[in-house]
Amino acid sequence: MAFTAAQIPGIAGRVYPPKLAGPLYPMGIPIHDEEKLPEIVEREGVRLVVFSYSDLTHVELMNKASKVLALGCDFMLLGPRSTMLKSGKKVVAVTAVKTGAGKSTVSRMLVKLLREKGHRPVVVRHPMPYGVLEKQVVQRFASLDDLDRYRCSIEEREEFEPHLREGTIVYAGVDYEMVLKEAEKEGDVIVWDGGNNDLPFYWPDLHITVVDATRPELITNSYPGETNIHMADVIILHKADKVSEEQLDRAAEMVRKVNPGAEVVATASKI
């Protein structure tokens, strides 16, 4: 078994540590650059390639699938029953159709509203495994000092700081089952503040998907963003103040065709 790296800089050439890989992989799991996939398939006799990252167009995804099939392998996408965990607490997931849709502002507003209702929301962020993975099993952020303690990257700081400045506890980490167990000890509502346009890691009781109203063409041309629209209970057309009424109506019509049962709400860039 091997992992390939495509979107995380500097991770190719490393090893997913044995401590996290489990007893079946006492030497850990090697991480190779995705460009070396044909070489790995031939050398190791690979029969199955599982695709497990996000933020691609459908065409980009199928281009990768076509290359894998041409190598003689099966190509698999993992669904929610294989990847999502069930929490003992209520979970609200905030996802997006595409990176840059504006879900972070939506997540922060959601946390504020939950507090006003008397809840104790805890945010769980998508992990960003740039550092030493063994030290990133479970990360708890309660203050800005914790960003230094965990040696967070600029990208991590951009995502975590706004929550911390508002007094919100944030969890992240590589082992998202252990992360969930720790987060459940502190909050009565788990807010999944996802990265990119990933599916939630936890089964949501309420699934909110954010759509960038300025880029409606991505509604049905983004993986797994379109899946998030299909699964959503609420669809937010964000940046509504940046488009004309006609463009906003078009975006609303497009999401309703994909998911006619979802509630559709339009919001401005700042909420």
Rank of each mutant, 00 (worst) to 15 (best):
M1F: 07
P17V: 12
L20R: 07
P23H: 08
V50P: 02
L56V: 10
V59G: 08
V68Y: 00
L78S: 08
T83G: 01
S87T: 09
K90A: 09
V97F: 02
K98I: 13
K112D: 10
L113N: 04
L113I: 13
L114R: 09
L114G: 03
R115W: 06
K117G: 02
R120D: 03
V122I: 13
H126C: 13
P127R: 08
P129F: 09
K135T: 07
Q136R: 15
F141H: 07
D148Q: 12
I154P: 00
I154W: 10
R157D: 01
H163Y: 15
A172P: 04
D175K: 12
E177W: 14
E184R: 11
K185P: 01
E186M: 11
G187W: 05
D188A: 07
D193H: 10
G195D: 10
N196T: 07
D198E: 15
D198A: 15
T209R: 05
D212I: 08
A213T: 15
R215P: 01
H230G: 01
D233R: 08
H238F: 04
H238Y: 06
D241E: 08
D249P: 03
R250H: 08
A251G: 09
A251N: 07
E253P: 03
V264K: 08
A266F: 09
S269T: 15
K270W: 13
